[in-house]
Design a protein around this nucleic acid. Sequence first.
DNA 1: ATTGGCACTCGGGGACTTCGAGTGCCAAGA
DNA 2: TCTTGGCACTCGAAGTCCCCGAGTGCCAAT
Lengths: 340, 340
Amino acid sequence: MADDRRLDVLRAIVEDYVSTNEPVGSKSLVERHSLGVSPATVRNDMAALEDEGYITQPHTSAGRVPTDKGYRLFVDRLSSVKPLSPPERKAIESFLRGAVDLDDVVRRTVRLLAQLTQQVAVVQYPSLTRSRVRHIELVHISDTRLLVVLITDTGRVEQRTVDLPGAIAEDDVADLRARLNNRIAGHPLADAAALLTDVPDAVDLRSRANVVAVVSTVLETLVEQREERVVLAGTANLARTTPLDFPGTIRPVLEALEEHVVLLRLFGEVTDAQTVHVSIGEENVHEGLWTASVVSTGYGATDQPLAGLGVLGPTRMDYPGMMGAVRAVARYVGQILAEG
Amino acid sequence: MADDRRLDVLRAIVEDYVSTNEPVGSKSLVERHSLGVSPATVRNDMAALEDEGYITQPHTSAGRVPTDKGYRLFVDRLSSVKPLSPPERKAIESFLRGAVDLDDVVRRTVRLLAQLTQQVAVVQYPSLTRSRVRHIELVHISDTRLLVVLITDTGRVEQRTVDLPGAIAEDDVADLRARLNNRIAGHPLADAAALLTDVPDAVDLRSRANVVAVVSTVLETLVEQREERVVLAGTANLARTTPLDFPGTIRPVLEALEEHVVLLRLFGEVTDAQTVHVSIGEENVHEGLWTASVVSTGYGATDQPLAGLGVLGPTRMDYPGMMGAVRAVARYVGQILAEG
DNA sequence: ATTGGCACTCGGGGACTTCGAGTGCCAAGA
DNA sequence: TCTTGGCACTCGAAGTCCCCGAGTGCCAAT
């Protein structure tokens, strides 16, 4: 039971610190929470918690502040996801319903999430490799130039121009278009490479070079990671934070946010759309984010998420609330995408 | 001549303040510049300049700092655009040459500009209304659903799905595609509305509703301002600024940067690709940018620019340098786009 | 019109003090 | 063995005081 109370104390410290943004002392703790013990007892618990590395004091005689490890324990064992209120859910739904296309869905989602959480929001575009091909369109731009347009079942559209080694006739374009669609329409993009290897073999020698060029462009568009895109919103919320949250400057964080590769890696661990993942302080791989926490999850079909979304803020954040918001938004987006 | 010297003094003040970030006094002024007069004389000039509102002192008995009006005079009459060094030009060119498509050009441009100027860079996508239609593609997704893809001569691709009131056959799609392209391919988007009005009249009654739906979607895609896009880079450079630059917090600036509508308005005045436009402090319409300056210009064909690009930073910025960088980058981008 | 001289201003920074929230430890009590 | 009240101690925040010096405005002399 003494052990249980120690955890209660840790929970209370995290909650108080998150809401007041001030190191919390033993006295104010017993005042704000009904722990049923005296400050002296709490002090003993605090000393123990500090020994174990869950809390720390900014300077000798100040209150305690949770460490990354403390937040981790809090998230894992001392809190649960805070569901959103019905009005909030209503607002999310009606806001997302208005979207006209995929771009719009993503844009609205990221703004919504930033607004809702008052943090920086990050949304990854539905991953290409995990979607299916709806259609490939070839547009004849000039004799030696085609525009390849790839449409996925999530509504994502990617395009790329191809410079052909030789001239190509309209008829040949139509033929190739039919072949390509016949081969991969309806299939996951991940399988595209395998399905397309023998396409050049089936056409006559004359145009084979052109076909190879087109196929390799299609594959590039599909495979190349550079096409993974993320969208941000709420950067201004970083300026709201106190110097306590980000020691010195928010610059490294802003820099990390500009390197979209870094952001994409945040969603690397996203494997299902059910669990909400939390990465706290130095748990983050990127050094610039060692003072920040990321709450993320996948969205899309529950078994096979399309991509990730999440929020980023100081380690001192309302984890249960953020997790609730992230989960709720992810669910609604998944729903919307499934319908559209 | 006394008047001339006063302007020299103002120029010296601006230059010193920009480089040192400290209010500049009469003594250090004569030390750093060879004005050929004594500090006392400079003091008289300063007093006059202050009376006229070109400079001000942060507090009694500190050096002087240029006002917005002072920077304005400096930009208009006391400085000239600083050309980039040949190596810099070389770097710009080779960096931009590597771009594979329009998206890539824009992305590279904005990063380059941020890097070069150490400020926040903003690049607007080539405006739709000012480009010409290269091709319109209609993709048959389902019986009652089409994907409309619009390709401009700048390489920009816009797409939108249309839900049709009734079913449509493949043949009708092909027919409509041909009609649309026949009508507006090669024409400026701005003329599209006029050119398309009578298209529905030419088809038989049966499919007229469908045609109307498609045409109106095309027009929406063309006309709607929401498709005007901007891209940002270098936000982290704002965190480099001192409290002197942005009194209190950079938050309002970050907020303004997130409202892309605000950014687009920055380029509203861009009418040609020759002159570089400077907007200083409270000259900015948006209140959140009253502590910032914007250096912008148009890019594209010199007579009819496609869109704008520029940088944003504290009013205390190196205007000649920024103008040089912005102008150079705009020229190269225009060149690249003209070739591609 | 320019300049040297001079008295004046005022913010920044260092030294010093006070205040109080918070701590650790201990001995007594349950 | 755990809890608790008591107590001395620590140390940062904030206030006060003071000095220094960069910078100013003004004036009389050139």
